[in-house]
Structure formats: C-alpha cells, structure tokens
Design a protein around this nucleic acid. Structure first.
Lengths: 210, 210
DNA sequence: CGTACTTTTGAATCGCATCAAATCTGGTGG
DNA sequence: CCACCAGATTTGATGCGATTCAAAAGTACG
C-alpha cells in the first residue's frame, strides 16, 4: 500500500521536509489511509511520526465517564508532533476522511533533530507557529457570538480582510465551535447587512469583509 | 529596580535556564513588577523574552467592539514564547499580580538557541507541552455547555479526577470561556447532582469528580 | 439517475450573557 | 477592634442567540 513519494512537490507544501537528508528518505513511506482506519491508539509506543498529506484525522480520547473528547482535528500537516518525545501516545488517531499520509520512523526524525541544527530550528519554528495559531483559536472560541468568530477568523487567518477557505462551510463551522446551521444563518445575516460578501464560484468559498 | 539573580534556585524551578551559559547571564535582569504594569504592548518590537518567577501576567487583546480577550494567563514560566521569532508582539502583557520577572534579551536567547543543541531540545519540548495544552483548551472551548467544560478541565488538567485551581473561580470562568455567573451556577448544579465536590478550605478551591 | 454530501430554511427549546443587586471575604488603616 | 473597601461569590430576572430536531433543496459524482 506504499506509494512513490514526490519529494519535490511535498517540500513545496512543507519546506521543513527538505531537511530530511536524501539518505534517509528510503525509510519513509507514503500510505493510503481510509476513513475508519486507526493510525495509532492510546498507550502504544510511538514508532512513527505522521504527516497528513490529504484526508482527515481526528485525535481523540475517551474519558472515564465514556465521553469522547476530540483533541485535534487535522486536515493536513504533522499529526501529534508531541509524540516525538513521549513514551506512549496520549490519544487515539482515527481517519475520518480517506487520503494519504507520510509515515516517518521516529528514530530517523530524532536522529536528524539531534544532528542537524537547521532542522531543529525549522521544527522549533513550526511549533512556534502552531502555538500562535492555537492561541488565536482559543481567543476566537472565547468570543460569544457567531458573527464575532467569523470576523475574527477572517481578520486573523486571511489577508487583506479576505480569505479563501480550505474546507466546506460545514467543516469550518466545527472549527469555529458552531453548528453548521448557526454558521449559515450568521453568514446570511452578515451578507444582508453588507458586512461581508461570499464568492462561491470556486471550489471553496471566498469571504471578504467590507 | 534590578535584583541579584540566584541562578541556582531558579534552575531548580526551571531546568531549561541551566542552558544559558554563565557568560551570558550578565545581560539578564531580574525585575520587580507591580500589578497594573504593562510589560509590552501590541505592535511593539520584541526586545526581551520574559520569564515570570512570581506574580501574575495576562496577555490580552481588544476586539474591534472593545471587548477584552485574554489570550493567556500566566502565574509562572515563559511569557509569549512565540514572540521569539515574531516581528512585533501580537498582544498586550499586563501584570495582574505583583512579583518578579527575568528579562532576557532576545538576541542572547537566539544566540544560545543557534549554538546549543541541548537548549534547542529543551526549548522544543517546552513548546511541545504548550501545544498540547492549547489543543486541550481549544477542544474544551468548543464544548457547548458550562458543565461539559468544567468536567473536561478537571479530567485533562487534574490528576485522579481532582484538581486544585491556581486562581479564584471568577478568573477560572474566563479561562473556560464563561461568565462568572454561569460558572457559579453550573458548579452549584454539579454539586447538588453529586457530580463533583468543592473544597474551599484552602486558598484556592479544590474540585473532585465523583 | 441515484446516492452522498452540502447548503438552506423553519420552529421550538435551552443555556448563557447581561444587568442588577446583595452578601461575603480578606485586608487596610483609623 | 471596628469601619471601610476592593474583590469574590451568590442570587434573581430577562432576552437573545445558539442548539436541536426536522425536512427540503441544491450539488457533485459515478
């Protein structure tokens, strides 16, 4: 189930991968994953670091009371970066949308991290960006109304008060901590009050604030 | 207003500081800060990285509508680690409880990061923990009800289904994305329905799930 | 053409925010 | 020791906005 990896295209999307020396690329696999698959589960020892190229993955855990807690929804990028220096996984990873992943043996990644200070720096800056992004998301989620969250999102994630989504609206709703109904209604209101416009001619909607 | 720094005690509390070479300690100051002080504000260029030894600091921003949003509350540790490679601060830092901070010139920190791979690694693991914590908070904030957020907080941040807060309840409410009234009412309900108990004999409340 | 997914609308309900006010607390200075 | 004050906690009433449940219409794709 392993595919040939086009490193050139991959590196364009994720420059940090350029730091993986060519000599180590042999150990890295590209796999197809299907909705429903489990990448890893809580308690097991991390052997691979995953990079989601395409598809969707949820990291989740069950509480003692049996409730399911979603720790992270990912539609691309490294999965559970934190597992790199953990003894065991702290959660389960379930594929929610079929796609492709890179599977990097943690040994290799650790080796490169130890030896290559450039890679370390790139990794640090990746984490730093992630911290900043997550802070912004926390900030957004503590806004009380749908309209405020929408505008905040466009202002912080977009450029020039405008933004092309990378997902359909109903998926965006979840990221905003809303139901899709609430998002649709709120968007409609923002349009009728001329606060923003939505362009749906492309694959994903483009939102622009006035 | 600069004090002499007792590195030995400091390093015990925060081992990462051991990586700062003795030769560079001269550039680092320990300052007293008072409630109400501003450490830095949005838009200004980061010159120092701050380490909060004692006291309390809020990182906050104001929305267009004038509401105050708290991005981070800290009662110790590094403040705004993300500022290390940012052009400008993306929030304001206000002292909410008097105490002491270390003020590390960013130049020095960057230099050590470049040269010392051990420090790099320690820094990476610091960021990794932060990422994990923030993910948990985002997931908590996307829970719809006050009760769910409270329980999630105890389950993820506490040990053995129980947790001692590090702040009064009204401050906790903000971290949970709730008004203090909503938190008080929800806590009362959870107590009367025997879901949890609150012990207020100490300075800060201790919450235990049943 | 049918299936799966997304978008849209409607109606009823619930929970939280909001505003207001009272009580309780610890700490201060007279 | 008491008066006083700021901050924390508590209770009440009201309204709004989001959730929830339900169903229909639009869209993409094989």
């Amino acid at each position: 189930m392993s595919h040939k990896i086009n490193w050139q295209i991959l590196i364009e999307k994720q420059p940090i991968l350029a730091f993986i020396p060519a000599s180590m690329r042999g150990g890295i696999e590209c796999k197809k994953v299907n909705a429903g698959d489990t990448l890893f589960h809580l308690g097991s020892k991390p052997k691979h670091l995953f990079y989601l190229i395409e598809g969707g993955i949820h990291l989740l855990r069950r509480t003692q009371s049996g409730n399911e807690i979603i720790l992270q929804r990912s539609t691309g990028g490294f999965i559970a970066e934190a597992s790199i220096d953990a003894q065991t996984y702290h959660c389960n990873a379930v594929v929610t949308a079929s796609g492709n992943i890179l599977s990097l043996p943690i040994q290799i990644v650790k080796l490169v991290l130890m030896e290559d200070i450039k890679f370390q720096q790139a990794w640090t800056s990746l984490l730093t960006r992630e911290v900043r992004k997550l802070r912004a998301q926390c900030e957004r989620l503590s806004l009380k109304t749908a309209a405020e969250r929408i505008i905040h999102y466009i202002e912080t994630e977009g450029t020039e008060r405008s933004l092309v989504l990378t997902q359909p609206l109903n998926a965006w709703a979840i990221e905003l901590g809303l139901t899709h109904e609430a998002l649709y209604r709120s968007l409609r209101k923002l349009q009728t009050t001329a606060v923003l416009t939505i362009d749906k001619s492309q694959q994903f909607p483009k939102l622009s604030l006035h």
